[in-house]
């Protein structure tokens, strides 16, 4: 049996969690917004160092706070992707607190901090905005153009597998 890893995408509603997973798994994108309630799970098998890894991707209902999410959804998670929307500052205003929450409740589980919808912004300008607020981000992606999506997931894989 191949290695199976659970990845949960967290962040506010509407930041593009479902879109990122759909882009990664099915390589499709839709501009229309379908609110996710509950949890929707997709999987994708990826090659990693000559092995096949099964990624079980949990697309959960976006909440304004992670601790509002149903605890069972986060059970057995191997990696988180925290997604923010650069066009809505409310999606990253509590980023620090959220990361502390994850760190405390899921110690040692890798978290990737991702700015999605990079197609809508001037990335360099937004980096300045983040710098002013003293926020550190790992990657920029666009589920719409597909830019960096695959790379982000693969970076998480290598973090999870401790490369």
């Amino acid at each position: 049996m191949s290695v199976s890893k659970k990845i949960v995408l967290v962040g506010h509603y509407g930041v593009g969690k479902s879109s990122l997973i759909r882009r990664f798994v099915q390589n499709i994108f839709s501009d229309s917004y379908q609110v996710t309630i509950g949890v929707h799970i997709l999987k994708k098998i990826v090659p990693y160092k000559g092995e096949e890894i099964t990624l079980v991707l949990w697309d959960i209902e976006g909440k304004e706070n992670i601790n509002q999410s149903r605890a069972s959804y986060l059970l057995g998670t191997s990696g988180f992707i925290f997604v923010i929307d650069p066009t809505r500052d409310s999606t990253y205003q509590n980023l620090k607190e959220e990361l502390i929450f994850l760190e405390k409740n899921y110690p040692k589980i890798p978290v990737i901090k991702l700015v999605n919808k990079s197609d809508l912004i001037d990335v360099e300008e937004f980096k300045k905005v983040l710098a002013i607020q003293n926020l550190e981000i790992d990657f920029f992606s666009s589920a719409k153009t597909g830019d960096n999506v695959e790379h982000v997931f693969m970076q998480l894989v290598s973090k999870m597998l401790g490369a």
């Binding site: 509950g38 949890v39 799970i41 999987k43 079980v56 149903r70 069972s72 057995g76």
Partner: peptide, 25 residues
């Protein structure tokens, strides 16, 4: 049935647990 159950195998290792998952698509 669905990749949701992929994680079940890992969870059943621990005995006497009652874990509810609401609203699974």
């Amino acid at each position: 049935i669905n990749p949701f159950f992929e994680t079940i195998a890992a969870l059943v290792i621990e005995e006497n647990q009652h874990i509810p998952f609401n609203c699974v698509i």
